[in-house]
Design a protein around this nucleic acid. Structure first.
Length: 571
DNA sequence: CGGTTTTGACCTGCGC
DNA sequence: GCGCAGGTCAAAACCG
Protein backbone atom coordinates (compact mmCIF):
# COMPACT_ATOMS: atom_id res chain seq x y z
CA UNK A 1 0.00 0.00 0.00
CA UNK A 2 2.60 2.45 0.95
CA UNK A 3 4.64 1.58 -2.04
CA UNK A 4 2.04 2.44 -4.57
CA UNK A 5 1.79 5.72 -6.28
CA UNK A 6 -1.80 5.85 -5.42
CA UNK A 7 -3.85 7.31 -8.15
CA UNK A 8 -6.59 8.42 -5.92
CA UNK A 9 -9.08 10.02 -8.18
CA UNK A 10 -12.33 8.30 -7.64
CA UNK A 11 -13.09 7.10 -11.08
CA UNK A 12 -13.87 3.80 -12.59
CA UNK A 13 -12.36 4.75 -15.83
CA UNK A 14 -9.54 2.59 -16.91
CA UNK A 15 -7.99 5.50 -18.62
CA UNK A 16 -4.90 6.45 -16.80
CA UNK A 17 -4.88 9.93 -15.55
CA UNK A 18 -1.36 10.99 -14.95
CA UNK A 19 -1.66 12.99 -11.83
CA UNK A 20 1.97 12.64 -11.08
CA UNK A 21 4.07 11.49 -13.92
CA UNK A 22 7.25 10.16 -12.59
CA UNK A 23 9.52 11.34 -15.30
CA UNK A 24 9.72 14.74 -16.84
CA UNK A 25 6.20 15.62 -17.54
CA UNK A 26 5.92 17.62 -20.66
CA UNK A 27 3.42 19.78 -19.04
CA UNK A 28 2.02 22.60 -20.95
CA UNK A 29 2.28 24.87 -18.01
CA UNK A 30 5.51 25.29 -16.27
CA UNK A 31 6.43 22.66 -13.80
CA UNK A 32 6.57 25.31 -11.21
CA UNK A 33 3.01 26.21 -11.84
CA UNK A 34 1.57 22.77 -11.79
CA UNK A 35 3.57 21.75 -8.82
CA UNK A 36 2.76 24.75 -6.83
CA UNK A 37 -0.72 25.61 -7.77
CA UNK A 38 -2.64 22.46 -8.13
CA UNK A 39 -1.63 21.01 -4.83
CA UNK A 40 -3.14 24.04 -3.32
CA UNK A 41 -6.37 23.04 -4.85
CA UNK A 42 -6.26 19.92 -2.89
CA UNK A 43 -5.54 17.63 -5.76
CA UNK A 44 -2.45 17.74 -7.86
CA UNK A 45 -3.20 17.69 -11.51
CA UNK A 46 -1.14 17.32 -14.55
CA UNK A 47 -2.88 18.55 -17.60
CA UNK A 48 -0.17 17.62 -19.96
CA UNK A 49 -0.49 15.59 -23.06
CA UNK A 50 2.87 13.97 -23.48
CA UNK A 51 2.35 13.17 -27.12
CA UNK A 52 2.20 16.77 -28.12
CA UNK A 53 5.57 18.33 -28.43
CA UNK A 54 4.85 21.83 -29.44
CA UNK A 55 4.45 23.81 -26.34
CA UNK A 56 2.31 26.52 -27.74
CA UNK A 57 0.19 24.07 -29.57
CA UNK A 58 -0.04 22.02 -26.49
CA UNK A 59 -1.54 24.87 -24.58
CA UNK A 60 -4.22 25.24 -27.11
CA UNK A 61 -4.86 21.59 -27.14
CA UNK A 62 -5.12 21.33 -23.44
CA UNK A 63 -7.12 24.37 -23.09
CA UNK A 64 -9.49 24.01 -25.93
CA UNK A 65 -9.95 20.40 -26.59
CA UNK A 66 -9.68 18.64 -23.36
CA UNK A 67 -12.17 20.87 -21.76
CA UNK A 68 -14.86 20.68 -24.34
CA UNK A 69 -14.11 17.92 -26.68
CA UNK A 70 -17.39 16.23 -25.99
CA UNK A 71 -19.38 19.07 -27.27
CA UNK A 72 -17.34 19.58 -30.33
CA UNK A 73 -16.32 16.34 -31.78
CA UNK A 74 -19.60 14.58 -31.92
CA UNK A 75 -21.62 16.90 -34.11
CA UNK A 76 -18.71 18.16 -36.14
CA UNK A 77 -16.87 15.02 -37.02
CA UNK A 78 -18.08 12.57 -39.57
CA UNK A 79 -18.68 9.19 -38.06
CA UNK A 80 -16.37 7.59 -40.48
CA UNK A 81 -13.56 9.78 -39.28
CA UNK A 82 -14.24 9.79 -35.62
CA UNK A 83 -11.61 7.26 -34.92
CA UNK A 84 -9.01 9.10 -36.86
CA UNK A 85 -9.68 12.60 -35.80
CA UNK A 86 -7.41 13.46 -32.97
CA UNK A 87 -8.71 15.88 -30.44
CA UNK A 88 -5.78 18.11 -31.20
CA UNK A 89 -7.21 19.12 -34.51
CA UNK A 90 -10.79 19.47 -33.59
CA UNK A 91 -10.69 23.18 -33.54
CA UNK A 92 -9.07 23.30 -36.89
CA UNK A 93 -11.73 21.14 -38.38
CA UNK A 94 -14.47 23.22 -37.00
CA UNK A 95 -13.01 26.44 -38.16
CA UNK A 96 -11.82 25.31 -41.50
CA UNK A 97 -14.63 23.07 -42.65
CA UNK A 98 -17.88 24.54 -41.64
CA UNK A 99 -19.31 23.55 -44.96
CA UNK A 100 -18.16 20.12 -44.43
CA UNK A 101 -20.77 19.73 -41.82
CA UNK A 102 -23.47 21.08 -43.99
CA UNK A 103 -22.89 18.88 -46.93
CA UNK A 104 -25.26 16.20 -45.97
CA UNK A 105 -23.31 14.81 -43.10
CA UNK A 106 -26.43 14.60 -41.08
CA UNK A 107 -27.51 11.82 -43.30
CA UNK A 108 -24.75 9.69 -42.04
CA UNK A 109 -24.59 10.91 -38.53
CA UNK A 110 -26.44 9.01 -35.95
CA UNK A 111 -28.30 11.25 -33.67
CA UNK A 112 -25.86 11.36 -30.85
CA UNK A 113 -25.92 13.96 -28.23
CA UNK A 114 -27.74 16.71 -29.97
CA UNK A 115 -31.03 17.62 -28.46
CA UNK A 116 -32.26 18.81 -31.74
CA UNK A 117 -33.67 16.12 -33.91
CA UNK A 118 -31.71 15.81 -37.06
CA UNK A 119 -33.23 12.68 -38.36
CA UNK A 120 -34.86 13.33 -41.62
CA UNK A 121 -38.47 12.33 -41.26
CA UNK A 122 -39.36 13.44 -44.69
CA UNK A 123 -41.41 16.37 -43.49
CA UNK A 124 -38.81 19.03 -42.82
CA UNK A 125 -37.31 20.56 -45.83
CA UNK A 126 -33.66 20.72 -46.62
CA UNK A 127 -33.65 24.46 -46.24
CA UNK A 128 -34.94 24.28 -42.75
CA UNK A 129 -32.51 21.61 -41.90
CA UNK A 130 -29.66 23.62 -43.29
CA UNK A 131 -30.83 26.64 -41.45
CA UNK A 132 -30.99 24.73 -38.23
CA UNK A 133 -27.58 23.32 -38.79
CA UNK A 134 -26.17 26.68 -39.64
CA UNK A 135 -27.67 28.13 -36.52
CA UNK A 136 -26.31 25.36 -34.46
CA UNK A 137 -22.95 25.76 -36.00
CA UNK A 138 -22.97 29.45 -35.33
CA UNK A 139 -23.87 28.82 -31.76
CA UNK A 140 -21.11 26.36 -31.45
CA UNK A 141 -18.66 28.76 -32.94
CA UNK A 142 -19.73 31.44 -30.57
CA UNK A 143 -19.38 29.06 -27.74
CA UNK A 144 -16.04 28.00 -28.99
CA UNK A 145 -14.88 31.54 -29.14
CA UNK A 146 -16.11 32.10 -25.66
CA UNK A 147 -14.25 29.06 -24.49
CA UNK A 148 -11.15 30.19 -26.27
CA UNK A 149 -11.35 33.52 -24.57
CA UNK A 150 -11.83 31.85 -21.27
CA UNK A 151 -8.95 29.56 -21.86
CA UNK A 152 -6.83 32.46 -22.84
CA UNK A 153 -7.77 34.18 -19.68
CA UNK A 154 -6.91 31.12 -17.72
CA UNK A 155 -3.58 30.85 -19.39
CA UNK A 156 -2.90 34.45 -18.64
CA UNK A 157 -3.80 33.87 -15.05
CA UNK A 158 -1.52 30.94 -14.84
CA UNK A 159 1.34 32.70 -16.49
CA UNK A 160 0.78 35.66 -14.27
CA UNK A 161 0.84 33.60 -11.14
CA UNK A 162 3.85 31.74 -12.37
CA UNK A 163 5.60 34.95 -13.11
CA UNK A 164 4.77 36.32 -9.73
CA UNK A 165 6.00 33.21 -8.08
CA UNK A 166 9.22 33.23 -10.00
CA UNK A 167 9.79 36.86 -9.28
CA UNK A 168 9.15 36.34 -5.63
CA UNK A 169 11.39 33.38 -5.58
CA UNK A 170 14.16 35.34 -7.14
CA UNK A 171 13.61 38.06 -4.63
CA UNK A 172 13.70 35.51 -1.89
CA UNK A 173 16.95 34.13 -3.16
CA UNK A 174 18.41 37.57 -3.16
CA UNK A 175 17.30 38.14 0.39
CA UNK A 176 18.67 34.78 1.37
CA UNK A 177 22.06 35.61 0.03
CA UNK A 178 22.01 38.92 1.80
CA UNK A 179 21.03 37.26 5.01
CA UNK A 180 23.68 34.63 4.58
CA UNK A 181 26.29 37.29 4.38
CA UNK A 182 24.91 38.83 7.49
CA UNK A 183 24.91 35.52 9.25
CA UNK A 184 28.44 34.87 8.18
CA UNK A 185 29.56 38.03 9.78
CA UNK A 186 27.63 37.13 12.86
CA UNK A 187 29.29 33.78 12.95
CA UNK A 188 32.63 35.42 12.77
CA UNK A 189 31.78 37.51 15.73
CA UNK A 190 29.99 34.88 17.72
CA UNK A 191 32.29 31.92 17.85
CA UNK A 192 32.18 28.77 19.81
CA UNK A 193 29.79 25.98 20.26
CA UNK A 194 27.06 27.92 21.91
CA UNK A 195 27.09 30.39 19.17
CA UNK A 196 26.75 27.70 16.60
CA UNK A 197 23.88 26.18 18.45
CA UNK A 198 22.07 29.40 18.70
CA UNK A 199 22.62 29.95 15.11
CA UNK A 200 21.39 26.55 14.25
CA UNK A 201 18.23 26.97 16.21
CA UNK A 202 17.59 30.58 15.74
CA UNK A 203 19.29 31.24 12.46
CA UNK A 204 17.34 33.13 9.96
CA UNK A 205 17.81 30.75 7.12
CA UNK A 206 16.02 27.75 8.38
CA UNK A 207 12.54 28.29 7.09
CA UNK A 208 13.81 29.44 3.80
CA UNK A 209 15.59 26.21 3.42
CA UNK A 210 12.30 24.52 3.80
CA UNK A 211 10.89 26.69 1.17
CA UNK A 212 13.63 25.77 -1.19
CA UNK A 213 13.41 22.08 -0.69
CA UNK A 214 9.73 21.76 -0.31
CA UNK A 215 8.03 19.36 -2.59
CA UNK A 216 5.97 22.04 -4.12
CA UNK A 217 8.33 24.86 -3.62
CA UNK A 218 11.32 25.80 -5.63
CA UNK A 219 11.48 22.81 -7.79
CA UNK A 220 14.15 24.15 -10.02
CA UNK A 221 16.48 24.83 -7.21
CA UNK A 222 15.97 21.45 -5.85
CA UNK A 223 16.36 19.82 -9.15
CA UNK A 224 19.73 21.34 -9.29
CA UNK A 225 20.53 19.79 -6.02
CA UNK A 226 19.27 16.48 -7.15
CA UNK A 227 21.12 16.69 -10.37
CA UNK A 228 24.28 17.61 -8.68
CA UNK A 229 23.93 14.58 -6.53
CA UNK A 230 23.22 12.31 -9.39
CA UNK A 231 26.88 11.63 -9.89
CA UNK A 232 27.25 10.86 -6.29
CA UNK A 233 24.50 8.32 -6.45
CA UNK A 234 26.90 5.92 -8.04
CA UNK A 235 29.46 6.35 -5.39
CA UNK A 236 29.26 2.79 -4.25
CA UNK A 237 29.75 1.51 -7.73
CA UNK A 238 32.67 3.71 -8.57
CA UNK A 239 35.22 3.25 -5.86
CA UNK A 240 37.97 4.74 -7.89
CA UNK A 241 36.21 8.01 -7.82
CA UNK A 242 35.93 7.77 -4.13
CA UNK A 243 39.58 7.17 -3.72
CA UNK A 244 40.44 10.02 -5.93
CA UNK A 245 38.15 12.30 -4.12
CA UNK A 246 39.42 11.24 -0.79
CA UNK A 247 42.89 11.83 -1.88
CA UNK A 248 42.23 15.18 -3.35
CA UNK A 249 39.70 16.61 -1.00
CA UNK A 250 40.95 15.82 2.41
CA UNK A 251 43.57 13.28 3.08
CA UNK A 252 43.05 13.49 6.79
CA UNK A 253 39.67 11.87 6.43
CA UNK A 254 41.34 8.55 5.80
CA UNK A 255 42.60 8.27 9.29
CA UNK A 256 39.28 6.92 10.46
CA UNK A 257 39.36 3.93 8.21
CA UNK A 258 37.16 2.57 5.49
CA UNK A 259 33.93 3.86 6.89
CA UNK A 260 35.22 7.32 6.70
CA UNK A 261 36.34 6.64 3.21
CA UNK A 262 32.96 5.38 2.29
CA UNK A 263 31.11 8.29 3.74
CA UNK A 264 33.43 11.13 3.05
CA UNK A 265 34.65 9.99 -0.27
CA UNK A 266 31.61 11.08 -2.14
CA UNK A 267 32.47 14.22 -4.02
CA UNK A 268 29.35 16.09 -3.14
CA UNK A 269 27.87 14.25 -0.29
CA UNK A 270 26.45 17.46 0.98
CA UNK A 271 24.12 17.50 -1.90
CA UNK A 272 22.85 14.12 -0.97
CA UNK A 273 20.14 14.89 1.41
CA UNK A 274 20.78 12.10 3.84
CA UNK A 275 24.42 12.83 4.19
CA UNK A 276 25.40 12.18 7.77
CA UNK A 277 25.45 15.04 10.09
CA UNK A 278 29.04 14.49 10.84
CA UNK A 279 29.82 15.34 7.31
CA UNK A 280 29.05 18.91 7.94
CA UNK A 281 31.20 18.81 10.94
CA UNK A 282 34.25 17.46 9.22
CA UNK A 283 33.98 19.88 6.36
CA UNK A 284 35.05 23.10 7.94
CA UNK A 285 36.05 24.57 4.66
CA UNK A 286 32.53 24.38 3.38
CA UNK A 287 30.13 27.16 3.90
CA UNK A 288 29.06 27.04 7.49
CA UNK A 289 25.74 28.41 6.61
CA UNK A 290 24.89 25.63 4.28
CA UNK A 291 25.94 22.89 6.60
CA UNK A 292 24.23 24.32 9.61
CA UNK A 293 21.17 25.06 7.63
CA UNK A 294 20.91 21.57 6.29
CA UNK A 295 21.67 20.06 9.62
CA UNK A 296 19.10 22.17 11.33
CA UNK A 297 16.55 21.51 8.71
CA UNK A 298 17.06 17.84 9.18
CA UNK A 299 16.84 18.21 12.90
CA UNK A 300 13.43 19.74 12.75
CA UNK A 301 11.09 16.86 13.22
CA UNK A 302 7.45 16.18 13.10
CA UNK A 303 6.24 13.29 15.12
CA UNK A 304 2.91 11.71 14.35
CA UNK A 305 1.22 9.57 16.92
CA UNK A 306 -1.50 7.42 15.50
CA UNK A 307 -3.19 4.22 16.36
CA UNK A 308 -2.22 1.58 13.92
CA UNK A 309 -1.90 -2.14 14.03
CA UNK A 310 0.32 -2.10 11.01
CA UNK A 311 4.05 -1.98 11.55
CA UNK A 312 4.20 1.22 9.62
CA UNK A 313 1.66 3.79 8.67
CA UNK A 314 0.90 4.19 5.04
CA UNK A 315 1.82 7.69 3.99
CA UNK A 316 2.13 7.20 0.27
CA UNK A 317 5.88 7.23 0.09
CA UNK A 318 8.31 4.47 -0.51
CA UNK A 319 10.56 3.76 2.40
CA UNK A 320 13.52 1.59 2.87
CA UNK A 321 14.49 0.40 6.25
CA UNK A 322 18.09 1.03 6.97
CA UNK A 323 18.36 0.32 10.61
CA UNK A 324 16.72 -0.76 13.76
CA UNK A 325 17.66 0.05 17.26
CA UNK A 326 16.48 -0.69 20.72
CA UNK A 327 15.75 2.63 22.27
CA UNK A 328 16.17 3.18 25.93
CA UNK A 329 13.01 2.99 27.96
CA UNK A 330 11.03 1.29 25.25
CA UNK A 331 10.92 -2.44 24.73
CA UNK A 332 9.83 -1.89 21.17
CA UNK A 333 12.60 -1.36 18.70
CA UNK A 334 12.83 1.79 16.73
CA UNK A 335 13.04 1.36 13.00
CA UNK A 336 14.74 3.80 10.72
CA UNK A 337 13.45 4.38 7.25
CA UNK A 338 14.69 6.40 4.36
CA UNK A 339 12.61 7.71 1.52
CA UNK A 340 13.43 5.86 -1.67
CA UNK A 341 11.09 7.58 -4.01
CA UNK A 342 13.97 9.58 -5.32
CA UNK A 343 17.66 9.07 -5.05
CA UNK A 344 19.02 11.44 -2.53
CA UNK A 345 15.75 12.31 -0.92
CA UNK A 346 16.67 13.61 2.51
CA UNK A 347 13.53 12.51 4.22
CA UNK A 348 13.83 9.89 6.88
CA UNK A 349 11.46 8.64 9.40
CA UNK A 350 11.59 6.69 12.58
CA UNK A 351 8.86 4.34 13.55
CA UNK A 352 8.43 3.10 17.05
CA UNK A 353 5.56 1.83 19.06
CA UNK A 354 4.65 3.63 22.17
CA UNK A 355 5.87 1.89 25.26
CA UNK A 356 2.73 2.66 27.21
CA UNK A 357 0.29 1.76 24.49
CA UNK A 358 1.52 -0.64 21.89
CA UNK A 359 -1.30 0.25 19.61
CA UNK A 360 0.07 3.71 19.19
CA UNK A 361 2.57 4.07 16.44
CA UNK A 362 4.89 7.01 16.66
CA UNK A 363 6.29 8.07 13.33
CA UNK A 364 8.83 10.83 13.30
CA UNK A 365 9.51 12.53 10.04
CA UNK A 366 12.64 14.44 9.33
CA UNK A 367 13.48 16.45 6.27
CA UNK A 368 11.59 17.48 3.22
CA UNK A 369 11.10 15.58 0.03
CA UNK A 370 13.01 16.83 -2.95
CA UNK A 371 10.86 15.16 -5.55
CA UNK A 372 7.29 15.15 -6.73
CA UNK A 373 4.97 13.27 -4.52
CA UNK A 374 1.90 11.23 -5.20
CA UNK A 375 -1.25 12.78 -3.83
CA UNK A 376 -1.37 10.54 -0.84
CA UNK A 377 2.20 11.23 0.06
CA UNK A 378 1.80 14.89 -0.55
CA UNK A 379 -0.72 15.11 2.19
CA UNK A 380 1.63 13.85 4.80
CA UNK A 381 4.60 15.67 3.35
CA UNK A 382 2.73 18.91 3.37
CA UNK A 383 1.61 18.41 6.88
CA UNK A 384 4.98 17.51 8.24
CA UNK A 385 6.75 20.15 6.24
CA UNK A 386 4.31 22.75 7.37
CA UNK A 387 4.63 21.70 10.96
CA UNK A 388 8.37 21.68 10.80
CA UNK A 389 8.39 24.93 8.98
CA UNK A 390 6.16 26.48 11.53
CA UNK A 391 8.35 25.18 14.25
CA UNK A 392 11.50 26.49 12.70
CA UNK A 393 10.09 29.79 11.71
CA UNK A 394 8.75 30.23 15.19
CA UNK A 395 11.94 29.33 16.90
CA UNK A 396 13.77 31.54 14.54
CA UNK A 397 11.73 34.59 15.17
CA UNK A 398 11.28 34.35 18.84
CA UNK A 399 13.84 36.11 20.85
CA UNK A 400 14.36 33.39 23.39
CA UNK A 401 13.73 30.48 21.17
CA UNK A 402 10.65 29.46 23.08
CA UNK A 403 7.34 29.47 21.39
CA UNK A 404 3.89 29.32 22.64
CA UNK A 405 3.02 25.68 22.20
CA UNK A 406 -0.66 26.27 22.10
CA UNK A 407 -0.23 28.82 19.43
CA UNK A 408 1.76 26.54 17.28
CA UNK A 409 -0.55 23.70 17.99
CA UNK A 410 -3.46 25.76 16.92
CA UNK A 411 -1.61 26.78 13.86
CA UNK A 412 -0.84 23.25 12.87
CA UNK A 413 -4.07 21.71 13.89
CA UNK A 414 -6.55 24.43 14.46
CA UNK A 415 -9.33 21.95 14.84
CA UNK A 416 -7.99 20.63 18.05
CA UNK A 417 -5.18 22.38 19.73
CA UNK A 418 -4.54 19.52 22.05
CA UNK A 419 -3.48 17.37 19.17
CA UNK A 420 -0.25 19.14 18.47
CA UNK A 421 2.41 19.67 21.03
CA UNK A 422 5.90 20.96 21.08
CA UNK A 423 8.82 19.27 22.62
CA UNK A 424 11.17 21.99 23.63
CA UNK A 425 13.35 19.72 25.69
CA UNK A 426 13.98 17.28 22.91
CA UNK A 427 17.39 17.36 21.31
CA UNK A 428 15.71 18.38 18.11
CA UNK A 429 12.83 20.75 17.79
CA UNK A 430 9.92 18.46 17.40
CA UNK A 431 6.27 18.90 16.72
CA UNK A 432 4.11 16.05 17.84
CA UNK A 433 0.81 15.57 16.14
CA UNK A 434 -1.16 13.40 18.42
CA UNK A 435 -3.83 11.70 16.39
CA UNK A 436 -4.75 9.17 18.97
CA UNK A 437 -7.28 11.37 20.63
CA UNK A 438 -10.85 11.38 19.54
CA UNK A 439 -10.97 14.02 16.93
CA UNK A 440 -13.55 16.63 16.48
CA UNK A 441 -16.42 14.82 14.83
CA UNK A 442 -16.95 17.73 12.55
CA UNK A 443 -13.46 17.39 11.34
CA UNK A 444 -13.46 13.70 10.81
CA UNK A 445 -16.51 12.45 9.13
CA UNK A 446 -14.99 9.46 7.56
CA UNK A 447 -15.50 6.09 9.11
CA UNK A 448 -12.87 5.16 11.56
CA UNK A 449 -9.76 3.73 10.13
CA UNK A 450 -6.65 2.57 11.87
CA UNK A 451 -4.97 5.76 10.95
CA UNK A 452 -6.46 9.13 10.42
CA UNK A 453 -4.66 12.29 9.79
CA UNK A 454 -6.17 15.65 9.09
CA UNK A 455 -3.60 16.43 6.52
CA UNK A 456 -3.12 19.83 5.18
CA UNK A 457 -3.41 19.10 1.60
CA UNK A 458 -0.90 21.06 -0.31
CA UNK A 459 -0.61 23.89 2.02
CA UNK A 460 2.25 26.30 1.82
CA UNK A 461 5.49 24.89 2.87
CA UNK A 462 6.45 27.75 4.99
CA UNK A 463 5.46 31.13 6.00
CA UNK A 464 8.58 32.95 5.31
CA UNK A 465 11.02 34.47 7.60
CA UNK A 466 9.64 37.87 7.98
CA UNK A 467 6.49 37.38 9.94
CA UNK A 468 6.33 36.98 13.62
CA UNK A 469 5.39 33.59 14.96
CA UNK A 470 2.11 34.87 16.17
CA UNK A 471 1.16 36.32 12.88
CA UNK A 472 2.37 33.27 11.08
CA UNK A 473 0.48 31.00 13.34
CA UNK A 474 -2.66 32.97 12.98
CA UNK A 475 -2.34 33.09 9.28
CA UNK A 476 -1.59 29.44 9.20
CA UNK A 477 -4.53 28.67 11.37
CA UNK A 478 -6.80 30.65 9.16
CA UNK A 479 -5.44 28.99 6.13
CA UNK A 480 -5.71 25.60 7.63
CA UNK A 481 -9.22 26.18 8.73
CA UNK A 482 -10.20 27.16 5.29
CA UNK A 483 -8.46 24.18 3.86
CA UNK A 484 -9.94 21.87 6.37
CA UNK A 485 -13.33 23.23 5.75
CA UNK A 486 -12.92 22.99 2.07
CA UNK A 487 -11.62 19.52 2.11
CA UNK A 488 -13.49 17.79 4.79
CA UNK A 489 -16.50 19.79 5.71
CA UNK A 490 -18.11 19.49 2.37
CA UNK A 491 -18.80 23.02 1.28
CA UNK A 492 -19.83 24.76 4.38
CA UNK A 493 -16.94 27.06 4.01
CA UNK A 494 -15.93 27.42 0.49
CA UNK A 495 -14.49 29.84 -1.88
CA UNK A 496 -15.62 32.85 0.02
CA UNK A 497 -13.33 32.13 2.85
CA UNK A 498 -10.57 31.28 0.50
CA UNK A 499 -11.15 34.53 -1.22
CA UNK A 500 -11.07 36.21 2.13
CA UNK A 501 -7.80 34.50 2.72
CA UNK A 502 -6.51 35.75 -0.53
CA UNK A 503 -7.45 39.28 0.24
CA UNK A 504 -6.54 39.32 3.86
CA UNK A 505 -4.50 42.30 4.88
CA UNK A 506 -0.78 42.07 5.31
CA UNK A 507 0.29 40.50 8.50
CA UNK A 508 2.15 43.52 9.59
CA UNK A 509 2.64 46.74 7.78
CA UNK A 510 6.36 46.73 8.09
CA UNK A 511 6.75 43.20 6.99
CA UNK A 512 7.49 42.10 3.59
CA UNK A 513 5.11 39.43 2.45
CA UNK A 514 6.72 36.11 1.99
CA UNK A 515 6.58 34.37 -1.29
CA UNK A 516 4.76 31.44 0.15
CA UNK A 517 2.10 33.68 1.52
CA UNK A 518 1.79 35.44 -1.73
CA UNK A 519 1.61 32.27 -3.67
CA UNK A 520 -0.89 30.78 -1.33
CA UNK A 521 -2.96 33.90 -1.52
CA UNK A 522 -2.79 33.89 -5.27
CA UNK A 523 -3.61 30.26 -5.37
CA UNK A 524 -6.48 30.83 -3.03
CA UNK A 525 -7.71 33.57 -5.26
CA UNK A 526 -7.48 31.36 -8.26
CA UNK A 527 -9.06 28.41 -6.63
CA UNK A 528 -11.81 30.59 -5.35
CA UNK A 529 -12.59 31.61 -8.86
CA UNK A 530 -15.55 29.48 -9.87
CA UNK A 531 -14.55 29.74 -13.48
CA UNK A 532 -11.21 28.29 -12.75
CA UNK A 533 -12.50 25.42 -10.73
CA UNK A 534 -15.20 24.75 -13.23
CA UNK A 535 -12.81 24.63 -16.11
CA UNK A 536 -10.36 22.60 -14.16
CA UNK A 537 -13.00 20.10 -13.21
CA UNK A 538 -14.15 19.99 -16.78
CA UNK A 539 -10.62 19.33 -17.87
CA UNK A 540 -10.26 16.51 -15.45
CA UNK A 541 -13.55 15.10 -16.50
CA UNK A 542 -12.55 15.39 -20.09
CA UNK A 543 -9.29 13.64 -19.46
CA UNK A 544 -10.90 10.88 -17.55
CA UNK A 545 -13.37 10.29 -20.24
CA UNK A 546 -16.01 12.86 -20.01
CA UNK A 547 -18.12 10.74 -17.78
CA UNK A 548 -18.57 13.40 -15.18
CA UNK A 549 -20.71 16.35 -15.51
CA UNK A 550 -18.75 19.52 -15.84
CA UNK A 551 -21.26 21.30 -13.72
CA UNK A 552 -20.44 19.10 -10.84
CA UNK A 553 -17.42 21.12 -10.06
CA UNK A 554 -17.43 21.23 -6.34
CA UNK A 555 -18.38 17.64 -6.11
CA UNK A 556 -15.42 16.75 -8.17
CA UNK A 557 -13.18 18.75 -5.99
CA UNK A 558 -14.46 17.30 -2.84
CA UNK A 559 -14.47 13.78 -4.00
CA UNK A 560 -10.96 14.12 -5.21
CA UNK A 561 -9.77 15.48 -1.97
CA UNK A 562 -11.57 12.93 0.00
CA UNK A 563 -10.35 10.06 -1.99
CA UNK A 564 -6.88 11.38 -1.61
CA UNK A 565 -7.27 11.43 2.09
CA UNK A 566 -9.02 8.16 2.27
CA UNK A 567 -6.42 6.47 0.20
CA UNK A 568 -3.96 7.73 2.66
CA UNK A 569 -5.98 6.60 5.56
CA UNK A 570 -6.38 3.17 4.21
CA UNK A 571 -3.74 1.06 5.79
C1' DC B 1 19.01 -11.01 -9.92
C1' DG B 2 17.90 -6.78 -8.02
C1' DG B 3 15.76 -4.71 -4.25
C1' DT B 4 14.74 -4.92 0.61
C1' DT B 5 15.38 -6.32 5.34
C1' DT B 6 18.19 -7.84 9.09
C1' DT B 7 21.72 -7.18 12.21
C1' DG B 8 26.12 -6.47 14.18
C1' DA B 9 29.57 -3.05 14.19
C1' DC B 10 30.92 1.52 14.10
C1' DC B 11 30.60 6.58 14.78
C1' DT B 12 29.17 10.67 17.21
C1' DG B 13 27.34 13.52 20.76
C1' DC B 14 26.63 14.17 25.43
C1' DG B 15 26.76 13.71 30.34
C1' DC B 16 29.53 12.50 34.17
C1' DG C 1 38.46 9.86 29.28
C1' DC C 2 34.72 6.77 29.66
C1' DG C 3 30.28 4.96 29.09
C1' DC C 4 25.81 5.33 27.18
C1' DA C 5 22.41 6.15 23.78
C1' DG C 6 21.15 7.49 19.28
C1' DG C 7 22.05 7.09 14.59
C1' DT C 8 24.10 5.00 10.52
C1' DC C 9 26.48 1.76 7.61
C1' DA C 10 27.07 -2.30 5.04
C1' DA C 11 27.52 -7.26 4.52
C1' DA C 12 24.62 -11.05 4.70
C1' DA C 13 20.21 -12.94 4.38
C1' DC C 14 15.87 -12.80 2.45
C1' DC C 15 12.33 -12.21 -1.00
C1' DG C 16 9.66 -11.68 -5.22
Amino acid sequence: MDKGWGLTLDTSSSQSLSLFPSKHPSTSFSKLTTDTMFPLLGFPVNLSRPSVKDDEHNRKVVGEVDFFSDRITKPASPPSHDQHVKPNIVKKEIVETPLHVNTGLQLLTANTGSDQSTVDDGVSSDAEDKLAKTTELAQMQVELQRMNAENKKLKEMLSHVTGNYTALQMHLMTLMHQNQRTDNTENEVVQGKAGDKNHAVGGGKIPRQFLDIGPSGAAEVDDQVSDSSSDERTRSSTPQNNNNEVGTRDGAKNVNGKRELGREGSPDSESQGWAPNKLQKVSPSNAIDQSTTEATMRKARVSVRARSEAPMISDGCQWRKYGQKMAKGNPCPRAYYRCTMAVGCPVRKQVQRCAEDRTILVTTYEGTHNHPLPPAAMAMASTTAAAASMLLSGSMSSADGIMNPNLLARAILPCNSSMATLSASAPFPTVTLDLTHNPNPLQFQRPSTPFQVPFLQGQPQNFGSGATPIAQAQAQALYNQSKFSGLQLSQEVGSSQLAAQATRPPLQPSQQPSSADTVSAAAAAITSDPNFTAVLAAAISSIIGGAHNANNTTNNNNSTSRTTISSFSGN
